[in-house]
Design a protein around this nucleic acid. Structure first.
Length: 301
DNA sequence: CAAAGTTCCTGCGAGC
DNA sequence: TGCTCGCAGGAACTTT
């Protein structure tokens, strides 16, 4: 679920709900997600106002008014659900204990996987739910982003100054497949399994193709690499426009289902016809580095 | 059996 | 021969 477009969609939702509000209480219902919550998490968040919310790659950065920043990664299954003051009241008397939040009927799983609650001074609440707990929640100092181990080695943002010359430089000696390279967050950030498959299909590039075969001997990008950069940016843009994609259970912060799933050309379409006009191929599924790749062997070379 | 993400480890081959 | 590097693949985290 959460590739760049989904994280950006969540960022926009949280921005609307959180910026300018003060945290009245922060509830941690367990001691860790992928890593332990920092010891001082509550001390530095309770009583603070949210100034802004940024995104770096698939990470959310929630800026607080004391110079601390909440670093949040959704992993595979992390979600935020927002409740305004009226909604919160509706859940007032529902079940709630150390491990179960009272919002279970809205967040799913009876509230068993509602690990963090951010309660604001206007009565609204943001609940972080993450069944698989591959997510991350950390607290850093503003400016520490560039030296934080999870962030320091991240590559360029696709919506920034990224271009095919930069990509060519990174791929020119790579013998790994171009699909695996796209998933490498040091090469470019934000692209996950779904959009890697989609961008390669739109570019007519076979996912197993050697990365360096897309770069000319002089280090300049071949035409197909130019196309790939355009298609990565394009597919991410379109997905942001429709509010992020969904497989089965993705909801944005207001509970609305994303729509990009309806636009998949190859992802999860094994044995179905290629949708490229005039192609007539059949979508195949292969495994690369333990992840499913979907492609049309006919129009992707 | 699979899954949207990331990190870490092992083993292998290339190149020096 | 032996060292280092990059890469492929797998395991790990966990639940539905």
């Amino acid at each position: 679920m959460p590739e760049l477009p989904e994280v950006e969609t969540v960022r926009r939702g949280l921005e609307q709900a959180m910026v300018g509000r003060r945290l009245e209480e922060v509830v941690l219902r367990r001691e860790n997600l992928r890593f332990p919550f920092p010891q001082n998490f509550r001390a530095h968040t309770v009583g603070r106002r949210v100034d802004s919310i940024r995104r770096r790659a698939k990470y959310l950065l929630i800026d607080l008014d004391d110079g601390k920043v909440i670093l949040s990664h959704l992993g595979m299954s992390g979600r935020y659900t927002l409740f305004d003051a009226n909604k919160v009241e509706e859940f007032e008397n529902t079940g709630c204990n150390d491990t179960h939040s009272r919002f279970g009927s809205a967040t799913g799983f009876d509230g068993r996987h509602d690990h963090v609650e951010f309660r604001f001074d206007d009565g609204s609440v943001a609940v972080y739910t993450d069944p698989r707990r591959f997510g991350v929640m950390d607290l850093i100092d503003v400016g520490e982003e560039s030296i934080h181990p999870l962030i320091e080695s991240l590559g360029p943002e696709p919506f920034g100054a990224w271009n095919s010359n930069d990509l060519a430089r990174k791929l020119q000696r790579k013998t790994s497949s171009v699909k695996v390279a796209l998933l490498d967050q040091r090469v470019v950030v934000g692209v996950g399994n779904i959009y890697a498959c989609e961008a390669l299909h739109r570019s007519g590039i076979h996912p197993s193709r050697e990365s360096r075969s897309l770069v000319r001997k002089d280090g300049r990008p071949k035409k197909k690499l130019d196309v790939l950069v355009d298609m990565v940016v394009d597919v991410l843009n379109k997905a942001v426009e429709v509010g992020g994609s969904s497989l089965n259970d993705f909801a944005d912060v207001n509970g609305t289902l994303g729509y990009f799933g309806h636009h998949f050309q190859v992802y999860d379409r094994e044995d179905e016809p290629c949708l490229k006009a005039g192609c007539g191929g059949t979508i195949e599924r292969i495994t690369q580095s333990g992840r499913s790749t979907f492609l049309c062997p006919r129009c992707q070379r």
